[in-house]
C-alpha cells in the first residue's frame, strides 16, 4: 500500500516531462483529448510540424469528422506520409483509427493503409439497430498493453457510423449489430474506435497505459 502511494506521484512526475504531440488537422473535438492529457498531468503540443511529430515521445491522432475531407487535408499538408512513417508510438482515436486503415466506405476514400483493413458502414439488421452507434458499450477480449489491468466487459464511449471488421490487428472487440474491432495494433501504431478521452476512469487508464508504453 505504502509503496503504491509512492509509485503514483513518480509516474505523474514522469508524465509532466513527457513530450506528447497531438496531430493538428481539420477534424473536430481535438481539444477533448488535450484536456484528457492535461488531467493526467501531461502538457501536450498541438502540431502539424513533421519534426515535432517525429521527435515526440508519444503521438495522438484523435478527432471526429468525415473521412474524405480529413484525408484530403492530410495529403495537402503532407501529413499522410509523416504519420505513416512515424516510428514512435501513435494512438489513433475514432476517425483517427479509420484513417489509419486502407480504405473507408465513407466518401469512398483511400486512407493511410497502416492497418490492413477496410472501414465499412454499419448496416442495421432491425429497428433497434440505430446508426450512429452512440453511447457506452463493452470491450470484449482486450489483449494489448493498451488494456493492461483490464477485465472483460468494461464500458467505453462510442460515437460512429462506420466500423472496422475484426482482422489480424484487432486487440479488442465490441458487439453492435455484429462484433467489430474496438481497437487495433500493429508495431508502433495503436488505435481505438471509441473515445478514451470521454470514457471516464476506464478511458483514463487506457491513455495512461499508452503513455507508459
Amino acid at each position: 500500500m505504502y509503496s503504491a502511494r509512492l509509485f503514483v506521484p513518480l509516474q505523474a512526475e514522469k508524465r509532466k516531462k513527457m513530450n506528447v504531440a497531438v496531430v493538428k488537422y481539420n477534424a473536430g473535438n481535438i481539444y477533448s483529448v488535450i484536456h484528457a492529457l492535461q488531467r493526467l498531468g501531461v502538457n501536450p503540443i498541438l502540431t502539424d510540424d513533421p519534426e515535432q511529430l517525429q521527435k515526440a515521445d508519444k503521438v495522438l491522432f484523435p478527432g471526429q469528422g468525415e473521412a474524405s475531407n480529413a484525408m484530403r487535408y492530410l495529403r495537402e499538408h503532407g501529413l499522410d506520409k509523416v504519420i505513416t512513417d512515424l516510428k514512435n508510438p501513435i494512438l489513433g482515436i475514432c476517425i483517427g483509427q479509420q484513417l489509419m486503415c486502407r480504405h473507408s466506405e465513407e466518401g469512398d476514400t483511400d486512407c493511410l493503409g497502416i492497418f490492413d483493413a477496410d472501414v465499412l458502414r454499419f448496416q442495421p439488421q432491425k429497428h433497434e439497430d440505430k446508426v450512429p452507434h452512440m453511447g457506452w458499450n463493452q470491450l470484449e477480449r482486450p489483449s494489448s498493453e493498451l488494456f493492461k489491468g483490464f477485465s472483460e466487459g468494461e464500458f467505453v464511449y462510442f460515437v460512429h457510423s462506420f466500423y472496422v471488421p475484426i482482422c489480424a490487428h484487432t486487440i479488442a472487440t465490441t458487439d453492435y449489430i455484429q462484433p467489430f474491432s474496438a481497437a487495433l495494433h500493429k508495431d508502433n501504431f495503436y488505435a481505438t474506435q471509441f473515445h478514451p478521452e470521454k470514457s471516464g476512469s476506464v478511458g483514463e487508464r487506457i491513455i495512461k497505459n499508452f503513455l507508459e508504453l
Binding site: Y31, H35, R39, K198, S199, G200
Partner: peptide, 8 residues
Amino acid sequence: VAAEVSIP
C-alpha cells in the same frame, strides 16, 4: 466542464 469532466 470540458477541462474537468471525462464523460460526454
